[in-house]
């Protein structure tokens, strides 16, 4: 065996993980080749010391953040993007409060027409929607990524006609510094998909997006929406040499699906 054949076996030799045959071959070579013997000895000392280098330990905040995000996902998973139970309780208390006040007003004013009470129900529904929008938009503005993820899971409950929530989601798809929030925001766009504005915005987002994982999510969304108008943009992505190879492949797959 030549020196060049032996050297790739060094690491296993030092670690004692060579087969008995290979070990014998290495030992035979080291006996007759002083250069390899000296080199193996020097490198082995470094190899052993590498294992002694202290490992960096993450801060406990990493675990906390992970479980926070996980719980945000869990809330989303339990009933299809349902926000945290505590927040819901708060919302239902507010809604019940509004209902009580409205009812009290109704009793106070005495007889009321059916039309008037229907108006009140509509008004009440509007109040709850406003509250939902308020909570969504406020969570989406938070510094912490897991709070913003929670905001995204609230957004799924917004009215499909709520353009303010839609705009906020699109802004997060395009600009959120955290990839997980961007991804969740892409998924949260689905309820808004009947809206032409949403579909156009998804195509625009694909054109502007540089994060491969988000690009793939946007392509998947366009396929799910059976968006035929996306063909041109998908063709561009499929041959874009600056795009990730996985993204190009996904774009080709999407073009086949949409045909």
């Amino acid at each position: 065996m030549t020196c060049e054949d032996i050297k790739p076996l060094f690491a296993d030799y030092w670690s004692g993980t060579l087969s008995p045959e290979d070990r014998a071959r290495v030992e035979q070579h080291l006996e007759i080749c002083a250069d390899c013997r000296a080199e193996s000895k020097r490198l082995e000392a470094l190899w052993r010391n590498l294992a002694l280098l202290p490992a960096d330990e993450p801060d406990s905040a990493l675990r906390e953040r992970f479980y926070e995000t996980l719980s945000a996902y869990r809330d989303g998973a339990a009933t299809g993007a349902k926000p945290r139970a505590a927040v819901w309780q708060m919302l239902s208390r507010i809604a019940a409060g509004i209902a009580l006040v409205t009812m009290g007003a109704g009793i106070g004013y005495g007889l009321r027409s059916n039309q008037a009470s229907a108006n009140e129900v509509t008004q009440l529904r509007g109040e709850v929607n406003n509250m939902r929008q308020l909570v969504t938009l406020s969570l989406l503005q938070q510094q912490s990524a897991s709070e913003r993820l929670r905001g995204v899971s609230w957004a799924v409950r917004a009215e499909p006609s709520d353009t303010e929530v839609l705009d906020a989601l699109l802004a997060h798809v395009n600009h959120d510094p955290n990839v997980n929030v961007r991804l969740a925001a892409v998924d949260a766009l689905r309820p808004f998909a009947s809206n032409r504005v949403t579909r156009d915005a998804v195509m625009q987002a694909l054109a502007g997006q540089t994060e491969p994982i988000v690009q793939v999510a946007l392509i998947d969304l366009l396929v799910d929406l059976k968006e035929k108008d996306a063909t041109e943009e998908l063709q561009r992505v499929a041959v874009d040499h600056l795009a990730d190879s996985g993204v190009r492949e996904r774009a080709r797959w999407a073009l086949e699906k949409l045909q």
């Binding site: 330990e57 993450p58 990493l62 996980l70 998973a77 969740a184 998924d187």
Partner: peptide, 26 residues
């Protein structure tokens, strides 16, 4: 992401506990 089951999230927590330190070191 909405289709993630509670069981899968529990599995992810197990994976996190097993691998997060070595990933951090990497």
């Amino acid at each position: 992401m909405a289709q993630v089951s509670a069981g899968e999230l529990a599995k992810l927590a197990v994976l996190f506990e097993r691998h997060h330190r070595s990933l951090f070191r990497y």
